[in-house]
Nucleic acid binder design. Structure first.
Length: 566
RNA sequence: CGGGGCGUAGCGCAGCCUGGUAGCGCACCUGCCUUGGGCGCAGGGGGUCGGAGGUUCAAAUCCUCUCGCCCCGACCA
């Protein structure tokens, strides 16, 4: 394509609203423009990159027997009421009414739709397994769209669904997706970590996320850098670092001491001279309308996911100050478990075996020393603690790291949630009716694009992996008034295209600096500069990644470019 | 939904506190010039100051309401 005819609105300056690198660069490089919060126009460059990601996706999905479909974004409410998600999804789902006041929604995913199709048509185990996929626009009314294309309200997702006759079949479908995802992300040039994940509101058992380490990410993952363990922070387990100082020995009884104005663990710890780990953190939660006391070591954080899982509840919240006072007789800051009998008490396992700790006295401005779990209060012990840097691997004892990451893909075993709720049955080989088991696997096109940019950029712009770059190579005549340079660039352009490269001819009447800056900014992997060395039959091949320069004979330049891109 | 910030030319911003001519840089248009890293000179076009209401002789500026966007948190397949 000829640059002079294209709409590539690059910006010299960073738009003020953009914070993360991928957002700044997508705007500056003219890939996207915003329409509304979390809603973007994908201009030529973004569209071309996304098409390439889609193509790779199709190839890898087709390779595992996936069948591409196109399903409606506009869904009738009944479908979602059947699965129960009409209510579960709450405000995250875009809802609308048609002219007859019937309820509809814009699909967030398509479990309901594929299950609807399946139950109407699948009759026999002989038709299984099936893997159906779609690459389509999905809608989520995010409470806070942010970070450019990373968290948006409308996005393009590849979603696939598997139907198998039994769990062994699901294992196979899951494994196929696992490897197809690896191939897809590899081909898109991403560096990623696969972590065990929490399956969340989707239900189901096994689940993995594909995470790209990035400061722009919104998830935290726990990894053993030596390899092996990797998990989403929500689900990660670890051996906690030992308490900073040993517990006092002896069978001591709780003893009040005055702590005027000392509320937080940090304050109390500074006041009494014992490290945070020698204190008990006492949180009052309300889980399914019931008060629950959650206890942690002073330097630990509550994992909300683990807490909900341990209690088997869906909804919980911190108690309001008035509730706390009513139940505990004291305000947050002076709370402790000793003497509490009017609510369930759950304690993190790191507290098992500890002795003579410091806790609030449930009396303003007083704490208790020598509080011992199991003696001075009874509790149910669960893993409730969020893993922290400094903890160690449960199996190897090696130190773990907590890393911020972008979730680019998620696969999970759904189980029977939808097939069962929506009445999908087939006959097995004995003529008996059975419910197929399902899997669900998704990733977002935009997330891959963003993750690539987050991973690969420098002060000059994007360094796009060749496989998903909007163009492979740009032909840049240095002096647009020089007919020989123009002609040579034109000739190279034709040759590159004949070799199957996505070539861009920078035929704009611009100064060389402008052309170079733009090419760098939008991240074209290769640039062939036709300049003064043309007199010697030489052109220059500039490799965006690593900024290498090669002088090559004009006649060989296109072939060399193709070779470099392979 | 809680907290914070910002809406002035296409982009980045100043002006607002202390009311009185709407400004700067980049971009854009014309001409000349220049051609290996956002070149130079000259001329030029472009603004409901987010919107509504109010105070005032007079509002970008003060007051009230409202809409939008961004950031932090909550939330999140």
């Amino acid at each position: 394509m000829r640059w002079s005819k294209l709409f590539i609105p690059t910006l010299r300056e960073n738009p003020a609203e953009a914070e993360v690198p991928s957002h700044q660069l997508l705007l500056r490089a003219g890939y996207i423009r915003q329409l509304s919060a979390g809603i973007y126009n994908y201009l030529l460059l973004a569209q071309r990159s996304i098409h390439k990601i889609m193509q790779i996706t199709r190839e890898e999905m087709d390779a595992i027997g996936g069948q591409e479909m196109y399903l409606p974004a506009l869904n009738p409410a009944e479908l979602w009421q059947e699965s129960g998600r009409w209510d579960v999804m709450g405000d995250n789902m875009f809802r609308l009414k048609d002219r007859f006041q019937r309820d509809y929604c814009l699909g967030m995913t398509h479990e309901e739709v594929v299950t609807y199709i399946a139950r109407g048509e699948l009759r026999s185990y002989k038709q299984l397994p099936q893997i159906w996929y779609q690459i389509q626009t999905k809608f989520r009314d995010e409470p806070r769209p942010k970070s450019g294309l990373l968290r948006v309200r409308q996005f393009i997702m590849k979603d696939s669904y598997s139907f198998d006759i039994d769990p062994a079949g699901l294992d196979a479908s899951y494994q196929k997706h696992f490897s197809a995802y690896c191939k897809t992300f590899d081909r898109c040039g991403l560096k990623y970590t696969i972590v065990e994940a929490h399956s969340g509101a989707m239900g189901g058992s096994q689940s993995h996320e594909f995470m790209v380490a990035s400061e722009a990410g919104e998830d935290f993952i726990v990894v053993n850098p030596k390899g092996g363990y990797a998990a989403n922070l929500e689900k990660a387990v670890s051996r906690p670092a030992p308490p900073a100082s040993p517990d006092p020995d002896g069978d001591l009884s709780p003893e009040e001491f005055h702590t005027p104005g000392q509320k937080s663990i940090e304050q109390v710890s500074a006041f009494d001279g014992f490290p945070a780990a020698s204190h008990l953190k006492t949180l009052v939660m309300v889980a399914d309308e019931q008060p629950v006391l959650a206890l942690l070591r002073g330097d630990h954080q509550l994992s909300e996911t683990k807490f909900a899982e341990a209690l088997g509840v869906n909804h919980f919240r911190p108690a309001h100050p008035a509730e706390i006072y009513g139940w505990m007789g004291a305000e947050a800051g002076s709370l402790g478990p000793a003497g509490v009998t009017n609510m369930r008490i759950v304690a993190d396992k790191a507290l098992e075996g500890r002795r003579n700790m410091i806790a609030g006295a449930n009396k303003e401005d007083y704490h208790l020393r020598h509080v011992t779990p199991g003696e001075d209060f009874q509790a149910e012990f669960y893993d409730l603690r969020q893993v922290a840097a400094g903890d160690t691997d449960i199996s190897t004892g090696e130190p773990l790291e907590v890393i911020k990451a972008i979730e680019v893909g998620h696969i999970f075993k759904l189980g029977y949630k939808y097939s069962s709720a929506m009445g999908l049955r087939v006959l097995d080989e004995h003529g008996k009716e059975v419910t197929p088991i399902m899997g669900s696997y998704g990733f977002g096109m935009e997330r891959i694009l963003c993750a690539a940019i987050e991973l690969y950029h420098d002060a000059d712009g994007i360094i796009m992996p060749a496989s998903i770059a909007p163009f492979h190579v740009v032909l840049t005549p240095v002096n647009s008034n020089d007919a020989a340079q123009r002609e040579a660039a034109e000739k190279l352009y034709g040759e590159c295209r004949r070799l199957g490269l996505d070539a861009l001819l920078d035929d704009r009447d611009e100064r060389p600096g402008v052309k170079f800056k733009d090419a760098d900014l939008i991240g074209i992997p290769l640039r062939i500069t036709v300049g003064k060395k043309l007199a010697q039959g030489i052109v220059e091949l500039a490799i965006r990644k690593g900024r290498r320069l090669l002088d090559v004979p004009l006649a060989e330049a296109a072939a060399k470019a193709k070779q470099l891109l392979a």
